[in-house]
């Protein structure tokens, strides 16, 4: 089919009906988002500039919330250190998650017979079908000091794990990697499985070793998927509250120190004072950070895409 188009030399313009595809395909997502998301978004942004008096929200325009938060970045509440903790934990989580999932996807694509791949893939996504919070509870009992993993290890005579990993940011990462894995497996599978095998064959025909074929063909062509996975994982990890609080123990230890994640801090600030505007302002900082990660991720993905094309 493709050859036919090339043979013709010129591309015919498709016939356009009164419902031009261009208009419809742009209008549908725009209209829905405008109707059901822009208003909540505006609420969120505007509220950050409002104030609270007598436990009630007072409209107006004030930078007081932001000024107050600025005063807590490096002192008192120390949001700064919590942000650093979140960066550290989410970035390392993203690396671990991709390091775990990419080989998994390679194994699925290249060692599982084609007709079984979708089945294997479905079972990789299966953990997602149970509630995240219940999975986190299960990790608690697995990782606890007297938990399943330690008990099993002790029965094998390994007592070096006695301390347990629960309530450290290691446990946070385990919970997050497990949460992210099904999504990353899908993203990476879509990109790895589409790598044209004739390219790999050609490389091998030309005498490339398997490692070279991987480095020259598979790796460059997976880079878009990997970049998307990394930024997605960082964003979700940065915003997540469950793993950090239920596995990380609320203020789990990492090399940054025993410090809460920023997302957990927002939750606890929210729960402790009737001041939704200030919570919105705090959340705005989170959203801006995530947006930066998103834009950086998109840029990197574009670069990877261009490198391939």
């Amino acid at each position: 089919m493709a050859d036919a188009a090339l043979a013709c030399g010129a591309v015919a313009e498709p016939a356009r009906g009164p419902w031009a595809l261009r208009a419809v395909s742009i209008a549908v997502p725009v209209a829905y988002t405008a109707a059901f998301f822009l208003v909540p978004l505006a609420f969120f942004v505007v509220l950050g500039f409002w104030r609270v008096q007598d436990y009630q929200v007072v409209p107006g325009f004030s930078l007081e919330n932001y000024r107050d938060i600025a005063g807590h970045i490096l002192a008192q509440s120390n949001y700064g250190i919590a942000i650093v903790q979140s960066f550290y934990v989410s970035a390392t989580t993203a690396l671990c998650a991709v390091a775990f999932c990419y080989p998994l996807v390679l194994a699925i694509v290249y060692t599982v017979p084609g007709r079984l791949q979708r089945l294997v893939l479905l079972f990789a996504v299966a953990p997602f079908w149970t509630s995240y919070i219940l999975r986190v509870f299960a990790w608690q009992i697995l990782l606890a000091r007297r938990g399943i993993i330690n008990t099993a290890a002790a029965s094998l005579g390994w007592d070096w794990m006695e301390q347990g990993w629960l309530n450290t940011q290691v446990a946070t990462r385990i919970g997050l990697v497990h949460y992210l894995a099904p999504v990353l497996v899908i993203i990476l599978y879509v990109s790895v499985s589409s790598i044209d095998r004739t390219l790999i064959e050609a490389a091998r025909e030309l005498g490339a070793s398997r490692l070279q074929a991987f480095r020259r063909v598979i790796w460059p062509l997976s880079r878009v998927g990997i970049t998307v996975s990394l930024s997605f994982a960082t964003i979700i990890g940065f915003g997540d509250v469950l793993s950090g609080s239920l596995l990380g123990g609320g203020a789990g230890r990492s090399i940054v120190g025993a410090v809460p994640l920023f997302s957990n801090m927002i939750m606890s600030d929210y729960a402790s004072s009737t001041n939704l505007p200030r919570t919105c302002a705090l959340a705005m900082i989170l959203v801006l950070i995530l947006a930066c990660i998103l834009v950086a991720g998109l840029r990197a993905a574009e670069r990877a895409q261009r490198a391939v094309a």
Binding site: L104, R135, I141, I148
Partner: peptide, 27 residues
Amino acid sequence: ALVAAGRAYLALGFVFLMLPIVTLIVF
């Protein structure tokens, strides 16, 4: 060797993915 290693890793990966699910089912 590569296929064997790949499948072994796949098995290990699935152990990790299923560990909490199995725990939950057992309890």
